[in-house]
Nucleic acid binder design. Structure first.
Lengths: 212, 212
DNA sequence: GTCTATAATCTGATAGAC
DNA sequence: GTCTATCAGATTATAGAC
């Protein structure tokens, strides 16, 4: 994921995931260890049930050390939510052009695979919006509108060239997105279907929902 | 909804909803006022972010009065979650028999309409399971298995008589359920589509996903 | 069955030493 | 940049009067 190597706040999903899994073999710096710990805790127990003590101890430090790197618990949530949302949007924009049918299939496949692969971050992205401050929520709502627009655009294109048959455009867009978003609720590692398998299955189901 | 008039703990979704909206015109007894207040608060802020003071004050009483009617905040969550789950299962079992295509369409329509109509209870049902005690969660997980089985059964029937074409049965059942469950996340009153409209749209989309 | 008052604990965040 | 110690306030739940 080179294209998202440097986001606004210097953090991206790959870096966080590596910090989480230790995949990079290098000792991670404190801010990333805290992000990874917060993702884990928020996904497991929810933002409100997670204490700053819990986050700090998962990252191997004292409660006070957290505040050297982040000014508040909410800011930690915001950084996670923002990088997750931006990453999703990048994944959708990276889908190759082509006929609307193939574009939609690839979008749903990528969107689903992302939610399964990054299911911990996805849970924070989709279910912890209410805990954000008003300013931070407004910032993230803008990204969410772009995500919705990406789905509505491909449906519009498919209606225009006659390859789709859709009774309600924005309702169907929402339904397609729901399919993938809900994966964050139930997916866990070690499931029968891999994230890639699930993506292919859901891409196929999505196409059947709208094709003429 | 006469068939669910008396659940194990003497509460059902209709009674709670009436307490919430005041639809019955009669002053509601304290336990139901508390249930309605808790549903509202849990759906709005989540279980962990909701305080017993908040619930009590929404129900028009002091914090201490709550404990006369319920032994804990978690018990309040359990009663709500349980009656919601049982109500969903009743709604699915109430779908008339017939060919698998029509049965599936009606099931998804009813399941979706329920999640939109009762979107506050639905939010608690779908997103607050982690806050339940181990015993209460086990109790509710059993009802959830029955709900999943209802969808898998109709897909199996449709495969047997050749009316469905499905690559992955349990994966497709999960996908169908996701469509409706995710409604609880985004639906709110006064939306463009009514719960009934949404149910019809989703019933149609679901059928397209699986039909031969 | 409701209230006021409060116990016991936990929370996010800060102070100040090293 | 990390620690120990702690503040100030909030939290669930209980005690006891009416």
């Amino acid at each position: 994921m080179l294209s998202i190597a440097n986001l606004g706040h210097g953090v991206n999903v790959s870096a966080i995931t590596n910090a989480e899994t230790g995949a990079s073999r290098q000792p991670q710096p404190a801010p990333r260890r805290l992000l990874a710990a917060a993702i884990e805790a928020f996904a497991e127990r929810g933002y409100q049930a997670t204490t700053t003590r819990d986050i700090a101890s998962r990252a191997g430090m004292s409660p006070a050390a957290l505040y050297v790197h982040y000014p508040s618990k909410e800011r930690l949530l915001y950084e996670i939510s923002r990088s997750g949302h931006v990453d999703v949007l990048e994944v959708l924009h990276a889908v190759p052009g082509g006929p609307p049918s193939e574009r939609l299939r690839h979008m749903v496949e990528a969107f689903t695979t992302w939610h399964a692969e990054h299911h911990t971050i996805a849970r924070v992205v989709q279910y912890e919006l209410a805990a954000l401050s008003a300013d931070h929520l407004a910032d993230i709502a803008a990204v969410r509108r772009d995500i919705t627009a990406a789905f509505e655009d491909v449906l519009t294109a498919g209606l225009a060239d006659g390859s789709f048959e859709i009774a309600d455009l924005s309702g169907s867009a929402l339904a397609l997105m729901s399919l993938s978003i809900d994966v964050a609720r139930w997916f866990s590692d070690g499931r029968r279907l891999s994230p890639a398998d699930l993506g292919r299955l859901y891409g196929d189901l999505a196409l059947r929902m709208v094709k003429a």
